[in-house]
Design a protein around this nucleic acid. Structure first.
Length: 202
DNA sequence: AGTGCGATTGACT
DNA sequence: GTCAATCGCACTA
């Protein structure tokens, strides 16, 4: 029996509250995308925490039209568009009304690799969901998924781990300029599906 | 109404 | 290793 045929939903009561604990907690867990063509599943191997009062967090200047999903109760999708090309998928991580989130940065593909590849046939399997832009592309996440409840077992949902998580590494977040020295990036050590240069992933 | 810029990526030297 | 592409939004006026 394939591991993804017995995925168990993560109920909201199992989610920790707070971006740092959530970011750690999610390493090794499973992210599932249901499409008409079938299921995509990946093991979460890299995350970043964005905190209240964190200058790099989109909530820093208060609630706006773009970021309101950040303020939903824990477990809701916050999706935004950046660099004119890419969607970033996050999960809200603070109590209702508190703007905090965890960015999904990389997945280890578990199922639906062919669906992830669709339209990107040249992408190596290792890179299918390695990096937040590619992850969202692989899962076909766009603004349509903004605000979805990832604990509801809908088109995009969180599930328990399919195997034990390894040692978790921690380092600075990638690609940001404000509050750039805070070590809020988490990843499974030694996992080849983690993004970023090898030097950051020891 | 105009401006600046970003939680990235892939192409290129 | 460097660097341009690309556009919605927040901010200023």
């Amino acid at each position: 029996m394939s591991p993804v045929s017995s995925l168990r939903r993560l109920p909201r009561r199992d989610l920790p509250v707070g971006a740092i604990t959530m970011a750690r907690f999610l390493i090794g867990k499973t992210l599932v995308r249901e499409l008409p063509e079938g299921r995509i599943a990946g093991r979460i191997v890299e995350t970043e925490a964005y905190l209240p009062y964190d200058k790099a967090c989109h909530a820093f200047n208060g609630m706006t039209k773009r970021n309101h999903s950040l303020f939903l109760p824990p477990g809701h999708a916050y999706v935004y568009f950046i660099y004119g090309n890419y969607f970033m998928l996050n999960v809200s991580a603070g109590k209702a009304g508190v703007g905090a989130a965890v960015l999904f940065r990389a997945l280890e593909p578990l199922a639906g690799e062919q669906l992830m590849k669709r339209g990107r046939s040249h992408v190596a399997e290792k890179n299918l969901a390695r990096g937040p832009g590619r992850l969202a592309a692989a899962l076909r996440v766009t603004m349509k998924q903004d605000g979805l409840d990832l604990c509801a077992g809908g088109p995009l949902w969180l599930a328990h781990a399919v195997r034990p998580v390894g040692r978790i590494g921690r380092g600075v977040r990638i690609g940001i300029t404000k509050d750039a020295d805070r070590r809020l990036r988490f990843y499974e050590r030694g996992n080849p599906f983690v993004s970023g240069p090898k030097s950051l992933n020891a």
